[in-house]
Design a protein around this nucleic acid. Structure first.
Length: 319
DNA sequence: GTCCAGGGAATCA
DNA sequence: TGATTCCATGGA
């Protein structure tokens, strides 16, 4: 694996792209937990220990590595960023502060997860165990548009295939950054795709939903910018009007995008399974009422139930 | 061949 | 409202 890492570095160097390194010291930050808890689809490990990942964020290729420090339990994260080729000439010295702010925002570094974990661990032994297992989870602030399309694609789908579809969409309609890395297509870029184009990329029955949602957004039939100022329930109602967005997908978008609402509780097959096992204990799992699950979540987990959902989901799915 | 995957929309009672 | 069925696709 040492060889692969060396090859990766050589690849980066030969392109002479802009690169910056940032070291951040944050508690509750384990790369495997963050990238494999099901919230994102564009990050992949490049070492066997899963201490090093590469991903695409906006128009940047980012490499992150975690290192255990000697003096404390903190994890140091080294971040390299590459600016897009097309911007190199005009932007040789890109704004360090702006880039740093972007990174901090994306990894949600302003939020004190240790404090949240301590508080949520007191709920009961189940939540405490789940946090013990996935304590390194941080909920990313992902681009709203990308999150909308990604989770429409996620419907009745599995994660490897979702990732493949998103890569193919990016390669065909996004901008080339470097090597095999492409930015996720902007609304105007993706809106060029016909339903048939999307079908060829393997979206299946989701092709029409992605197409229609892209058309609505690109034609400005709804203004998503105001969502950042509106209460969660109001945003949720508007999300539900978009083709391909039902209750579960809407909640995922609210939780995993930079809308960043923790007062939602996405219920999928896994969450239903874990909630039934731990709290409801119905012999017939499929018969469990979804509203009952949401009610219990609201009562037991409170305003940060979205974060609790992630701990429970990650814990149960891996065990 | 069958089942399942971080569900949603259409249909019907 | 609530329950059933169909929807593409690929891997196990």
């Amino acid at each position: 694996m040492k060889n692969e890492e060396k090859i990766m570095e050589d690849k980066f160097n030969e392109h002479k792209l802009n690169s910056k390194e940032y070291r951040v010291s944050a508690n509750a930050f384990t790369l495997k937990d963050v990238f494999e808890c099901g919230q994102c689809f564009r990050w992949n490990p490049i070492d066997e220990q899963k201490h090093k990942y590469v991903g695409v964020v906006d128009d940047m290729v980012i490499e992150v590595e975690e290192r255990q420090t000697e003096k404390s339990d903190d994890i140091e994260i080294k971040v390299y960023t590459r600016s897009p080729e097309q911007n190199l000439e005009q932007n040789l010295e890109f704004d360090n502060k702006e880039m740093q702010d972007k990174i901090y925002k994306y990894f949600d570094l302003d939020r004190n997860y240790d404090e949240l974990k301590e508080k949520l661990s007191k709920i009961d032994d189940n939540v405490s165990s789940a946090i013990q297992y996935g304590g390194g989870i941080r909920i990313l602030n992902q681009d709203l548009w990308e999150t909308i399309i990604s989770f429409i694609i996620s419907a009745n789908n599995n994660i490897p295939r979702i990732k493949g579809i998103i890569e193919r969409l990016s390669k065909k309609y996004g901008k080339h950054i470097m090597e095999d890395y492409y930015s996720f297509p902007k609304p105007e870029e993706l809106a060029k795709a016909t339903i048939e184009d999307l079908r060829k990329l393997g979206l299946g029955f989701r092709d029409k939903r992605v197409y229609e949602t892209a058309q609505i957004i690109v034609n400005s039939e709804i203004d998503v910018n105001q969502w950042y100022e509106q209460p969660t329930e109001q945003v949720r109602e508007q999300l539900l009007e978009l083709p391909g967005i039902g209750p579960k997908v809407a909640d995922c978008i609210l939780l995993f995008s930079d809308l960043k609402r923790f007062d939602v509780f996405p219920v999928d097959v896994w969450v239903r399974r874990v909630m039934n096992e731990l709290y409801i204990k119905n012999a017939d799992e499929k018969a469990v009422n979804k509203k009952q699950i949401e009610q219990i979540a609201k009562e037991k987990f409170g305003a940060e139930r979205g974060l609790v959902q992630q701990y429970l989901f990650y814990w149960k799915r891996d065990n």
